[in-house]
């Protein structure tokens, strides 16, 4: 009969592997992810748990990201010209010296006198139902619960909440959550988190300035933001409109070209329109 292996070899082999784990590998490895928690969207709790237990957090966070885009519809519904103008209109007022609207009655009287464009009458109530996309923040939180280092979600989500939906408090909550996650990670691991940390702080500053009406500072911060990698096209489009209204078509054109080439196909057609429009203005 062939040699029968003694069980002692088995014990020895496993002891070696386990001791190596205890004294070497486990000392060098630290799991950067926080422990699994309950998903902010309970309908996906089990689904997200599958991602965690199968070691595919990033993949499932990508699926959650796609679900966010489907929910929010940004991939299908590019911001219209009127919507973009309306979003940056209060900033334009500041730069042009016009007063900010305070109530509807005053606006109507003003426009009856001066013949304002329809866009000028566009109020938040006409743009989007405040109750719409009420779970946008939850979707963003869900993604970053799976992958806290999916920094783009903080920027995109905050941008959408602050500038498109005018829910600056939720945007601030999201960004503060991102900062808190990075703080925790840095405290536990000591790794350098400056780059994402600074970027999130930048967006937070921009939104805080917007909320407090300090549009000059907000624009300055946005200018820094768009120079960084992973700046959402949404934020670039905000600044591009600001530049256009501020009489800086060349800078606006540069941003729209950047948006067109960014890879986000949802902005392609609109960016192409804007590029054509700006080239026309500049006589190119």
């Amino acid at each position: 009969m062939n040699y029968r292996l003694s069980w002692l070899y088995v014990v020895f082999a496993f002891s070696l592997a386990i001791l190596f784990n205890v004294f070497v590998v486990s000392k060098r490895f630290s799991n950067p992810f926080p422990p699994a928690g309950v998903s902010p969207i309970t309908e996906y709790a089990v689904f997200d748990l599958v991602g965690i237990v199968s070691g595919t957090r990033r993949l499932f966070s990508d699926i959650a990201w796609i679900q966010l885009l489907q929910y929010y519809g940004r991939a299908d519904k590019p911001v219209s010209l009127e919507e973009e103008i309306e979003t940056s209109w209060d900033v334009v007022h500041f730069f042009s010296g016009l007063r900010l609207w305070k109530d509807k009655h005053e606006d109507e009287e003003h426009c009856d006198e001066h013949g304002c464009s329809h866009a000028g009458h566009h109020h938040i109530e006409d743009n989007k139902d405040p109750a719409e996309y009420k779970r946008l923040l939850d979707h963003c939180r869900r993604i970053v619960a799976l992958d806290p280092f999916f920094n783009y979600v903080y920027l995109y989500g905050a941008g959408a909440l602050a500038w498109n939906l005018e829910r600056t408090d939720e945007a601030i909550e999201l960004l503060k959550h991102g900062i808190s996650e990075l703080d925790t990670y840095h405290a536990n691991f000591g790794n350098d988190v400056n780059e994402p940390y600074w970027r999130i702080n930048l967006y937070l500053s921009a939104i805080l300035y917007r909320k407090s009406g300090e549009f000059l500072k907000m624009t300055g911060v946005l200018e820094k933001a768009v120079r960084l990698p992973e700046c959402p096209a949404l934020v670039k489009s905000i600044l591009a409109n600001i530049y256009q209204k501020d009489g800086k078509p060349a800078q606006s054109l540069k941003l729209w070209i950047d948006i067109y080439e960014s890879g986000d196909t949802s902005y392609h057609s609109h960016a192409a329109e804007k590029i054509a429009e700006l080239k026309n203005i500049m006589g190119l």
Binding site: A17, F20, N21, V24, V25, R28, F29, P32, F33, G55, T56, R57, R58, D147, F149, F150, N151, L182, Y185, F189, N191, D192, V193, E195, P196
Partner: peptide
């Protein structure tokens, strides 16, 4: 593959993990 965007990750544990 899950740690792709984790800031400052050096992979110092990897050689030991391979041996393990």
């Amino acid at each position: 593959r899950d740690f792709w965007d984790v800031p400052g990750i050096t992979g110092s544990w990897i050689p030991a993990a391979i041996i393990y």
